[in-house]
Design a protein around this nucleic acid. Sequence first.
DNA 1: TGAGCGGATTTGTGATCACAAGCAATCCAT
DNA 2: ATGGATTGCTTGTGATCACAAATCCGCTCA
Lengths: 216, 216
Amino acid sequence: MILNPRPADAAPAAHDRVYRALRGRIMQGDLPPGEGLTLRGIGSEYEVSMTPAREAVRRLVAEGALTMSSSGRVSTPELSNERIEELAALRALIEVELASRALPRAHMALIERMQTINATIAEAVAHRDAASYIRTNLEFHRTLYLRAQAPAMLAMAETVWLQMGPTMRALYGRLRKTEPPHFHRLIIAALRAGDEPGLRLAVRSDVTQGLRMLAS
Amino acid sequence: MILNPRPADAAPAAHDRVYRALRGRIMQGDLPPGEGLTLRGIGSEYEVSMTPAREAVRRLVAEGALTMSSSGRVSTPELSNERIEELAALRALIEVELASRALPRAHMALIERMQTINATIAEAVAHRDAASYIRTNLEFHRTLYLRAQAPAMLAMAETVWLQMGPTMRALYGRLRKTEPPHFHRLIIAALRAGDEPGLRLAVRSDVTQGLRMLAS
DNA sequence: TGAGCGGATTTGTGATCACAAGCAATCCAT
DNA sequence: ATGGATTGCTTGTGATCACAAATCCGCTCA
């Protein structure tokens, strides 16, 4: 019985390649809010026809990563403050639960890996590299949450990240921040200590800190 | 400035019509888990070509309402027990928050409407009408959550419902239940009393009761 | 100077087709 | 009679095209 008919080295489907490329760019804030996209433009950029471009866009719209006007034009979303607050609240709910579930499985090797990622984040902050900052920050969280063994929850969390991508870029770009992430150290400390309430608080604080930037 | 260029009475786009029809059938448990779907079959059923059928399916797959094998075949998902537990936990997290946000805005008219819906649910239970039960049960919850004024959260909750649709049908179908929903009365009572902790507990209990059916 | 208008262009939508891969029923050899 | 190869049908994918609607740009007229 063949379990995985598609070999790992096979060429991925065109629509999936386009989807992944666009998704990565959106999630790490490569595209500013309100950026317009056209099917023919995407198609020529990735050297495919309109069909796979349309499927990739449709999927991203379904995930909330792109918005579609009533006439079918697609663009990156421009989030209202209310929606940003909602998405931050969702992050807090879901990611606190993910962290809590990951805690009993978080061994030393994982914590050290997170510390390494955290060092990379500090570097990105020092170099004012917003894209690298966002990408590595998400990697920090994902590394922890993968241990929760909860794929549906992780997928939900990533969907929220995706929706906030363009806005995050705009927020961090306007910010003159030099200090490395404070709450990440608290997260790591709580993991070491096996301190579940402390971990929940640290994750919630880290996730909602963007809101404070917004309010200022 | 034209805010909504597409009049309300205009014919909706074909792919959207197909999407809505399939979504409704999946969410209310019309399709059993593991049911296979074909693009040409969907197309002929709704009298459209493969293109809109493909877009509707692609969107439902992105939302987790359908699964796609590595060869591209689509079917309703057969959820593992671990995934059902995850989805129930997500429902508990998100819907408790939605209920909590709706509480201060829940006026008498809303509570009475929910009681009316609850009566319809009792009828569905008495008639052993699983599809009507699921549909009306979701309407009960949605009526409350709409008051939370949190569209992103509501969308997330609906996505979870969608993923559980086929499985819910299978669960309720195998159940020999005659009593109307107990926790719905607790929800209504907590709303009347303005009792937030009680409301949170009642919603959490109602949402996770399916898990107990699964364990038995 | 600016608002309204008309045509040219861009853009999304849906249908159709060619193609390759999957799947199943069939047929043959042992 | 049974296990395995093979043939034919089914299915998803991607390209292309026609079409309608939206958008944009330049012009005109107040």
